Amino acid sequence: MKVVGISGSPRKDGNTEVLVRQALQPFYEKGWEVSEFFLSSKTINPCIGCETCIETGKCVIEGDDMEFLLREFEHCDALIIGTPVYYRNVTAQLKALFDRSFVFNNRKLLAGKLGGAIAVGRGEGGGQSLALSIIHNYYLSSGALCVPCEINGLSAKADKPGDIKMQENRLRQARVLGENILKYAELMKAKAD
């Protein structure tokens, strides 16, 4: 079984990456294959809206990390996507990934797969609920199944780099998100067997 963890943060080792890694811990412990795809060290160029992929099933943009990610999507069983909140939205880097995913719309690469969401904002009500809704909408539009944390996705407040490391409750909730996805994955596997 395989899980892909995606951080939409352009900041390496930022609060979002910390929470995504924490959510991935239960998968490491259960022996799943884990792929960390952090946009702080990857490049996804924005979609140019040419719609060539509708006809060919292939994106005309080459030379970035999207092709690798498409292979990861094809072979994963679950996803965890996290983003810092920028202007009450996901980051431009994550939005580019979502837009470029249109290339696999006809192939339904995420259909039936499990997905969890994490959003980190500067303050309470800093747009985290909107960012979580955007990630969940991406999952639902792709046929993936949204898995909750304790309530909905994981919403966290952090301002400075490393702030989240001092928030035991949020670190625990990230782990709960991973554990919930594992629980649903095991139920689905048992039902399929």
Results as ranks from 00 to 15, higher is better:
residue 71 R to Y: 13
residue 61 I to K: 11
residue 97 L to E: 06
residue 55 E to R: 15
residue 72 E to C: 09
residue 156 A to V: 02
residue 74 E to P: 08
residue 113 K to Q: 03
residue 98 F to P: 05
residue 64 D to R: 03
residue 138 Y to Q: 06
residue 136 H to M: 13
residue 82 G to A: 09
residue 162 G to L: 05
residue 137 N to E: 14
residue 160 K to L: 11
residue 86 Y to R: 09
residue 101 S to W: 12
residue 185 A to I: 01
residue 150 E to V: 15
residue 27 F to H: 03
residue 42 K to Y: 02
residue 74 E to W: 08
residue 27 F to A: 05
residue 8 G to K: 01
residue 51 E to R: 13
residue 33 E to M: 07
residue 22 Q to Y: 09
residue 35 S to M: 07
residue 149 C to F: 01
residue 55 E to Y: 12
residue 182 L to S: 01
residue 8 G to I: 01
residue 97 L to G: 08
residue 17 E to R: 04
residue 56 T to A: 09
residue 161 P to S: 05
residue 1 M to F: 13
residue 62 E to C: 10
residue 28 Y to W: 10
residue 77 D to P: 03
residue 21 R to H: 05
residue 2 K to F: 00
residue 45 N to M: 14
residue 70 L to F: 13
residue 32 W to D: 10
residue 55 E to K: 15
residue 109 L to V: 09
residue 175 R to L: 05
residue 191 K to W: 12
residue 28 Y to K: 10
residue 91 T to Y: 12
residue 2 K to M: 09
residue 129 S to Y: 11
residue 124 E to C: 11
residue 159 D to R: 12
residue 58 K to G: 04
residue 101 S to F: 14
residue 105 N to C: 10
residue 155 S to F: 00
residue 131 A to G: 04
residue 83 T to P: 05
residue 49 G to P: 05
residue 139 Y to P: 00
residue 106 N to H: 15
residue 109 L to Q: 02
residue 157 K to G: 05
residue 168 E to H: 10
residue 193 D to K: 13
residue 56 T to I: 07
residue 192 A to C: 05
residue 143 G to A: 09
residue 60 V to P: 08
residue 25 Q to C: 08
residue 56 T to Q: 08
residue 130 L to I: 14
residue 185 A to G: 00
residue 117 A to E: 02
residue 43 T to N: 11
residue 9 S to C: 06
residue 71 R to Q: 15
residue 23 A to M: 03
residue 173 Q to C: 07
residue 104 F to N: 14
residue 67 E to N: 11
residue 24 L to W: 00
residue 38 F to D: 00
residue 136 H to V: 15
residue 124 E to N: 13
residue 85 V to P: 03
residue 82 G to P: 04
residue 167 Q to M: 10
residue 184 Y to G: 00
residue 38 F to C: 03
residue 108 K to M: 13
residue 4 V to A: 02
residue 121 G to L: 04
residue 82 G to W: 02
residue 186 E to Y: 07
residue 140 L to K: 11
residue 112 G to W: 10
residue 158 A to D: 02
residue 17 E to C: 03
residue 114 L to E: 01
residue 124 E to Q: 14
residue 151 I to N: 14
residue 12 K to W: 08
residue 53 C to L: 10
residue 33 E to A: 07
residue 54 I to R: 15
residue 135 I to T: 03
residue 119 A to T: 08
residue 36 E to Y: 00
residue 119 A to H: 07
residue 113 K to T: 02
residue 193 D to I: 12
residue 162 G to H: 07
residue 98 F to A: 07
residue 81 I to F: 04
residue 90 V to Y: 07
residue 35 S to T: 14
residue 150 E to I: 15
residue 82 G to Y: 01
residue 81 I to V: 12
residue 115 G to E: 04
residue 167 Q to G: 02
residue 189 K to N: 11
residue 164 I to K: 00
residue 71 R to S: 15
residue 127 G to S: 08
residue 156 A to C: 07
residue 179 E to W: 01
residue 138 Y to K: 04
residue 167 Q to L: 08
residue 153 G to C: 02
residue 34 V to D: 02
residue 72 E to K: 12
residue 70 L to N: 06
residue 148 P to I: 10
residue 133 S to C: 13
residue 133 S to Y: 10
residue 67 E to Q: 13
residue 104 F to Q: 14
residue 98 F to I: 11
residue 34 V to A: 02
residue 190 A to D: 14
residue 79 L to N: 04
residue 123 G to N: 14
residue 53 C to I: 05
residue 184 Y to S: 04
residue 116 G to P: 06
residue 21 R to V: 00
residue 143 G to W: 03
